[in-house]
């Protein structure tokens, strides 16, 4: 094992420029992946907040008896998808409109008759806040005879959903392209080292070294470069994250960074890239030697 480490470290000293190149390529490919990952997780976080507000509003026909509504409210609250139901009377609706819609305050003040209908505001449980469930509950609400109209903000939820998917896919594709470049560059570096050391390797084979023994240092070298590249990419991501969060004038003050598990995942992916690159070129070399 000590021999392995020594041989692997030696290669850094032998080809510092190439080693630096492969580390930076890995770092940049993971950086790209990481940035898109950050956008994706923050978007998801934002969506979670928005989902909290997913609610269905059922407008009630004027003149519906209070008992009917109370019974219906209990009924609806018993739906498996429903978290709670709030009945908003006509007066409460008007009061809220006066409070919230400041621009129209004058218009509402001078009204003789309250134009706003009473409504039931239904909030769904976590996990049922997607378009399909919302649609189903809305359908059942429409079934009540005293319900005039049912509204819910489906479109913007779907749009954000779509945006999240797009970011994920674009990030994945670009990151993958960079990862492929990283594998190739690592492969080339290792290949150059192999050529430099072809004589040494042929002597190793001659005196009975197993292929795994010969591969060992090269695989370790690749993995080490992957590790360093992965760590570097995390540093870059964090720098980018801080810059964005603190220079944005508070707009993005709530941005989150990766969880520890996700960071470990990124670094491990770097190690995997490094291993792939070296495995490919070492395998080829040993087969042709």
């Amino acid at each position: 094992m000590r021999l392995l480490t020594r041989e692997a470290l030696l290669s850094f000293r032998r080809a510092p420029l190439l080693s630096t190149l492969s580390i930076t390529t890995i770092a940049f490919s993971l950086f790209t992946l990481g940035l898109f990952g950050l956008v994706a997780i923050n978007l998801r976080e934002a969506l979670r907040g928005l989902e909290e507000r997913v609610e269905i509003v059922a407008f009630v026909l004027r003149g519906t008896p209070a008992e009917t509504i109370t019974l219906a409210t209990q009924d609806i609250a018993a739906f498996p998808e429903v978290q709670d139901v709030v009945y908003v009377t006509e007066e409460q609706a008007l009061a809220r409109a006066r409070r919230e819609l400041v621009e129209f305050r004058d218009a509402y003040r001078d009204l003789q008759v309250n134009p706003l209908p009473a409504s039931m505001e239904v909030r769904l449980r976590n996990g049922y806040r997607d378009a399909a469930h919302v649609e189903r509950v809305a359908q059942r609400l429409r079934g009540f005879g005293f319900v005039n109209d049912v509204r819910f903000g489906r479109e913007w939820v779907q749009k954000l959903d779509y945006l999240r998917n797009i970011t994920g896919i674009v990030g994945f594709v670009i990151g993958l392209a960079f990862a492929a470049v990283a594998v190739v560059i690592i492969g080339v570096t290792i290949r150059l080292t192999l050529l430099q050391r072809a004589r040494e390797i042929s002597i190793m084979r001659l005196v009975g070294a197993t292929n795994w023994f010969i591969r060992g240092p090269f695989l370790l070298e690749g993995a080490l470069k992957g590790l360093l590249g992965g760590l570097l990419s995390l540093v870059l991501c964090y720098a980018g994250y801080l810059l964005f969060r603190d220079r944005s004038g508070g707009t993005f003050a709530g941005l989150i960074f990766f969880q520890p598990v996700q960071m470990v995942g990124i670094v491990l992916f770097g190690v995997l890239l490094g291993l792939c690159g070296s495995l490919v070129s070492v395998g080829r070399h040993l087969r042709h030697a």
């Binding site: 004589r199 040494e200 042929s202 002597i203 084979r205 001659l206 005196v207 009975g208 070294a209 197993t210 292929n211």
Partner: peptide, 22 residues
Amino acid sequence: RPVEIPKLRRRLGVVFQDFRLL
């Protein structure tokens, strides 16, 4: 088999005209 080649070589000594030293 390729994995057995190292075993064979450990039971042989090989010497060449050009020494092949590092």
